[in-house]
Design a protein around this nucleic acid. Sequence first.
DNA 1: TCATTACTCCTTTTT
DNA 2: GGAGTAATGA
Length: 739
Amino acid sequence: MNPNYFSDLNVQQKDAVMHTEGPLLILAGAGTGKTRVLTSRLAHIIDQKKAFPSNILAVTFTNKAAKEMQVRIGNIIGSAIEGMNWLGTFHSIGAKLLRMHAEEVDLKSDFTILDTDDQLKVIKEVIKSINIDEKRFPPRYFLSQIENWKNKGLPPEKVAKNELDMIGHEKSIDVYDKYQNRLSRLNSADFGDLLLLPLELLQKNESLLNKYQRIFSYILVDEYQDTNSVQYLLLKLLSQRSLNIACVGDDDQSIYGWRGADVNNILNFERDFRGAKIIRLEKNYRSTKNILGAARSLISNNKDRLGKELSSYKEDDGDKVKINSVWSADDEARLVSDEIDKIISKKENLNNTAVLVRASFQMREFEDRFIINSIPYRVVGGPRFYERQEIRDVIAYLQLVANPNHDLKFERIINTPRRGLGDTTLRKINDAARRDDISLYDISKKIVHTDELGGTARVKLKSFISMIDSWREKVNKIDHITLTELILEDSGYIAMWENEKTPNSESRIENIKELIGQLSEFQSLSEFLDHVSLVMDVENDENSSKVSLMTLHSAKGLEFDYVFIPGMEEGVFPNQRSLDEKGNSGLEEERRLAHVGITRAKKYLFLSHAQNRRVYGNWTQSIPSRFLSEIAPEFIEQEMIYSDYTQGYPSFSHTNYNQKNNNSQTALERLQAIGYLDNLEYDDLSFSQEINVKPNQRVFHTKFGYGTVIDCDNDRIEVEFKTGKKIVLASYLELVNND
DNA sequence: TCATTACTCCTTTTT
DNA sequence: GGAGTAATGA
């Protein structure tokens, strides 16, 4: 027996594939071939006829990972993959279970899944109804309380009244309780419910539990270090009978503590699942020795670890890790762009290049710069397609047609486009609905026959309602694409954007067209709406060569030849709030995040920190991240500051790191001291430089990007930019090295 | 009813 | 520097 899925596996990997019976924990470090082991293992179980594909529960952390696994298993087992009904994220599997048994938890099977915006709206309503001061207790505060409880598997009645570990606790419980009531009245579930309600279902209903324990004869969990308590409880329940649960994870990559992930799940695996076997995968096939060394030295600063040392499979030391000090965040983006230009000139595919940031606000500088330098890029997990205003509007229409009692969507579109049904009318409808305790849609049907509303409002409301009814009638008669087009026509929504003359109204219409295009990938309206709620992202085209720009969190599980991690500054990374709120454990999580980032790189790693950065629009100084000094010096190579004003002045260095951080002298003062600056204000910096240009000189212009000087006429300079020839003032140009 | 403006408080990370 | 909101005016 030597099926092809065994070939090229090392001893530990084979072990993990073969060990099919009983609990198993695979501790898989970054780049150790985890996905291969997972897919091979699944293929092995199916191939050996230990279980049908439909009897395997395989949980991944992201939809992307689920999809990738599906493709890879499909390559091994062929069409049998179609039987794998239970491969997906915890949330999508939870939703599936919930739809099948919704009645048992006071929902209907066509319930809608709420997004954060909707959640906040509901909470605001609740807060208002029990007279809580929104200023003292912002809705977000309650939302995070509720999410915490849900992550722990606690419904309102289980939240112990004596758990007084936070201010406003009683209020929170009250809000939680009323919030849940409201959700079930809206026939809706939020993300937390997709896990919590299935758990309740299984805890309450023993025969159902037995059924699913039988169905799932093998359970496989990816990214186990990121599971929270509900997820743990679900797994525990479901695996009790077969005991065939295999979890893959890496405690050094646990980065979702803020979302309720509990590292103890992985740390206590042996205790929780008796007789568990543990296999370590420590051979890293991804990175060069220098990169791996940097990662290892950094993460060794963490205390709470299971203990695992990655060793390099690659013979190659590779380039040293580059650490760069720059003057400002703008310079940082410029430097990264220049480096990427070098990668482009090597004719590399840019899909192998990524810029990873700690927080999404850092992306702006890079996007601006990439546009100026015409570097093609994609933002991964950035401003989501489905979160755009026009897309949400269209979806609101569709959701309302699917579920007319969805008050939140009703409110969203009742006056979009303008129908003369403004705040006043809406308030009246709301009051009446509350009085009769029915939905906005239902009350509207009633009050168009009374005189509660003024004459015009009544007529307008009536036509709005009959429009919805006419769409609802057609749901089962025409296909969902035609229906959507009809809705957009009838409602005047498309016309609204067509009539608007703002620069982005055209792209909004494009987006709507794209949405309609996507509809064809689904069988029905409800299938599409489910997809939208669960998979907030839209796939990127992977065919074109583009730099990826994303957060470190969304980079988990990916790998790139070239990786840039800017913003290595105290406060940014490690993130200040994380330190303030969680102290040392917060710091360790940040360090793990840095470790994740570093181990994404296969052969080239670039780290940088800026000395000055705008925070809330004000220039603020920052000091290099402690993480830089925690990387052992033998793996790194330091570069000088990249700026015309501060050339040759190294900011970060191992030897004087501590001294520097205790030094009260600011970056600005240091520069003044060495004569680079003469009491200049920061804002003057960009135009303070006299320049002297000659033809062929490479120059840079903030608006047009890089170019080459063609001709000079005093201070009027003719420059060839990427976008064409322009005559610009010398004072707007900066010199660039000609190389 | 809707558009404009002044003013507040921000920002971590995602299913 | 920006999004969301409350207050003001047309």
